[in-house]
């Protein structure tokens, strides 16, 4: 009889296998899927930038409007894409739970990592393109950028974990979560400057942790950017910790329900 494998070794083997399986699905699912993966956010960002330039807005908070939009959107997309990928991780890998080595948590974490990989490539390409077009798109404070981006990514993971369990337990929540995602784009200060919202409404919008992440990424790129007062890295990470712990707790408690018939 062969020596049983160490549980950690099994987990790593499973993660590696799921990573490759997911990457193939994301990159070669349809004809040139990898091309659309890159071009979709690029077109989206280009379109909004053109619209803003057309209405003669050159600076927001003292920085180049193109950079303001690019950086904000990349941060927001990182959150949203991670959240949605993690949300459907269990659903999309159902046949694979026939192998008992694969636990419901595995595809969730792997999908988040894969999304971070993809977004890193997409962001580098878009920022490089912006640099070639004459925008100053190098981050001046890379550590702050890394911290804020990491916060957005981890919050996406935490949100996705919580959402996927809720969706499984109460299927109706899917509609509510979809409704939540729609306005999130508008109220997170991605295309509408937070500074233009008057009090006391700005206070309400600042309860959304994504605003904090997006604003801080911008500040990391351009240190003299006028951050909206009240933006706080600790607030973002408080949400990260709470959502991750809650998500992991729910997975620990309901992992069996996710795969049981």
């Amino acid at each position: 009889m062969r020596e049983p494998r160490n549980p950690l070794a099994i987990s790593f083997a499973v993660w590696q296998a799921i990573f490759l399986r997911e990457a193939i699905d994301r990159l070669f699912d349809m004809r040139a899927a990898w091309f659309w993966l890159l071009i979709e956010p690029a077109l989206h960002i280009a379109f909004i930038t053109v619209v803003y330039s057309a209405v003669r807005m050159y600076t927001v908070g003292g920085i180049d409007v193109a950079l303001w939009i690019i950086v904000g959107m990349l941060g927001f997309f990182l959150f949203r894409r991670t959240a949605i990928q993690v949300m459907y991780a269990v659903d999309c890998n159902r046949p694979l739970f026939a192998y008992r080595q694969v636990k419901p948590f595995d595809p969730a974490i792997v999908r988040a990592v894969l999304e971070a990989f993809l977004m890193a490539i997409i962001a580098s390409a878009i920022l490089a393109a912006a640099a070639l077009l004459g925008h100053d798109s190098l981050p001046r404070d890379p550590l702050l950028v890394a911290l804020a981006v990491g916060g957005l990514w981890l919050f996406g993971l935490g949100y996705g974990l919580v959402a996927s369990v809720l969706m499984e337990l109460v299927p109706e929540t899917e509609h509510i979560l979809k409704l939540l995602m729609m306005p999130l784009y508008l109220i997170s200060g991605v295309i509408m400057p937070m500074a233009s919202v008057r009090q006391p409404y700005r206070e309400f919008l600042l309860m959304n942790p994504i605003v904090h992440g997006v604003e801080l990424v911008r500040q990391g790129f351009v240190p003299y950017y006028h951050v909206v007062p009240g933006v706080d890295m600790a607030y973002l990470y408080a949400w990260v910790i709470v959502s991750l712990l809650l998500g992991l707790l729910l997975y620990r408690r309901f992992a069996l329900q996710l795969v049981m018939k």
Partner: peptide, 20 residues
């Protein structure tokens, strides 16, 4: 379990990797 979008070979690779 077989994942419909993957080819037979890719499915086989997946199972091999999962089993170390």
């Amino acid at each position: 379990g077989l994942e419909g979008t993957l080819s037979g070979r890719q499915n086989a690779k997946f199972v091999c990797r999962v089993h170390g």
